[in-house]
């Protein structure tokens, strides 16, 4: 058990160093710093993979049962999805938004108990890891969409106001950012949909009902409708650019609220307390 906590902390340190490197790279306009930040991030990701595997082996269950575990998994998915986008679009700057987010998730993770939860028999179902994996991958993809949205708004603002800062030269084109938004939507929406469906199936096997309107389910549904509206708007009435960017940012803040807010402020079946019986 201590091995994976140590691994977790080293991973966190690497994400921290990556964030610093990005910060220096963006402020001092050194392209090489930012490029090295990506390489460091790849190293951190590999270590993160090992961390998760070690924990999985140690606890005998997929490490998503406690808040600590799921934060780590969320951060892992976030970095992983970003690196996939990096391979496709080579957008180094996107990482400057994603890495700090992953770092924050990891830091929150350190404040929660890293104890392996005494597993609730309810979670011992094949549908549980499927549900959680799909949901977090969807979250990660939407996080990318939100980061691309922020970059879009910054870039658009500079192009409209005709006042250019150094960032202008380093951010990708509006078209690239907008097509990232669309790509994220086409991947994230099915992931989220399947996440909700698999969750319902699992709920049925665990509680004997597909949908119980617990706060997390309600909020997830609201968020789902938001993304559905964006996808619909994009496909049929030519929503794009600024509007799509703003939607992606709002959608992701809803997701974050669904994830944190519900766990922290509201109670329901999704609260980790119920999982671990604490």
């Amino acid at each position: 058990m201590t091995t994976n906590i140590l691994l977790f902390k080293v991973t966190l340190l690497i994400y921290f160093a990556t964030t610093i490197l990005y910060l220096i790279g963006v402020i001092s306009r050194r392209d090489r710093f930012r490029q090295n930040a990506v390489y460091l991030l790849i190293g951190g990701f590999i270590l993160h993979c090992i961390t998760l595997v070690v924990r999985w082996v140690a606890t005998g269950a997929m490490p998503v049962a406690s808040l600590h575990e799921s934060l780590s998994f969320f951060a892992w998915a976030l970095v992983g999805i970003y690196l996939i986008f990096y391979l496709r679009y080579r957008t180094v700057m996107l990482g400057a938004f994603i890495t700090p987010l992953a770092l924050v998730l990891m830091i929150i993770g350190t404040t929660t108990s890293a104890q392996a939860p005494a597993l609730n028999p309810m979670l011992d179902s094949w549908w549980f890891p499927v549900h959680v994996t799909l949901a977090f991958l969807g979250h990660a993809v939407f996080a990318i969409a939100a980061a691309a949205g922020i970059m879009y708004l910054l870039q658009e603002r500079m192009l409209k106001s005709k006042k250019f800062s150094g960032l202008f030269y380093r951010l990708p084109s509006l078209d690239t950012l907008d097509s990232m938004n669309y790509k994220c939507l086409t991947f994230g929406f099915p992931l989220m949909t399947m996440g909700i469906i698999s969750g319902a199936i699992w709920a049925n096997s665990a509680w004997g009902g597909y949908w119980r309107w617990d706060p997390k389910e309600t909020w997830a549904l609201i968020t789902w409708f938001l993304y559905a509206a964006l996808l619909h708007g994009r496909l049929t009435i030519g929503w794009r650019g600024r509007r799509a960017a703003i939607f992606a940012i709002i959608g992701f803040s809803f997701l974050l609220f669904t994830f944190f807010g519900v766990n922290l402020f509201l109670s329901g079946e999704h609260s980790f307390r119920n999982f671990t019986g604490q």
Partner: peptide
């Protein structure tokens, strides 16, 4: 980065359309 007006227009177009 472009230092002529006509080429600056091309670069701006690239920042919009890629």
């Amino acid at each position: 980065n472009a230092v002529s007006v006509s080429f600056a227009a091309v670069e701006l177009a690239r920042k919009i359309f890629d």
